[in-house]
């Protein structure tokens, strides 16, 4: 599938996650966030960069990991990305959503 955001054609999965992290940039993040009803603040960015860092270092993402991150506590995390914080924040950060093997 592909998607047009901020004038760029992006490769995405069926549920809208970027398949190529190198296509990600800040404008795209702002647009994906908007689609999910989120206006990105400095705190959001801090979390998004932290998520990208974790993925780069092969650390599995989980809500418990957020608790230990020092960036944000879990309550704030739910407030920043209401609905499904991990699912939504990974989409905006341009990284794969947490998944299982099937």
């Amino acid at each position: 599938m592909d998607l047009n955001i901020a004038g760029i054609r992006l490769d995405v999965t069926e549920d809208g996650y970027l398949t190529d992290v190198s296509q990600w940039n800040k404008e795209i993040a702002v647009e994906i966030a908007k689609e999910n009803g989120i206006e990105l603040t400095d705190k959001h960015w801090e979390v998004l960069y932290w998520i990208q860092d974790q993925v780069k270092n092969d650390v599995a993402l989980s809500v418990r990991g957020i608790k230990k991150s020092g960036v944000i506590d879990i309550k704030e995390f739910y407030e920043l990305f209401p609905g499904g914080p991990l699912k939504i924040s990974t989409k905006i950060a341009g990284v794969p959503k947490p998944k299982s093997c099937i």
């Binding site: 959503k97 998944k99 099937i102």
Partner: peptide, 16 residues
Amino acid sequence: TPLGGAFTKPKATAAL
């Protein structure tokens, strides 16, 4: 499940 569905990969989701 903490994930978005019982199945999380597109082909498996469709098949199962």
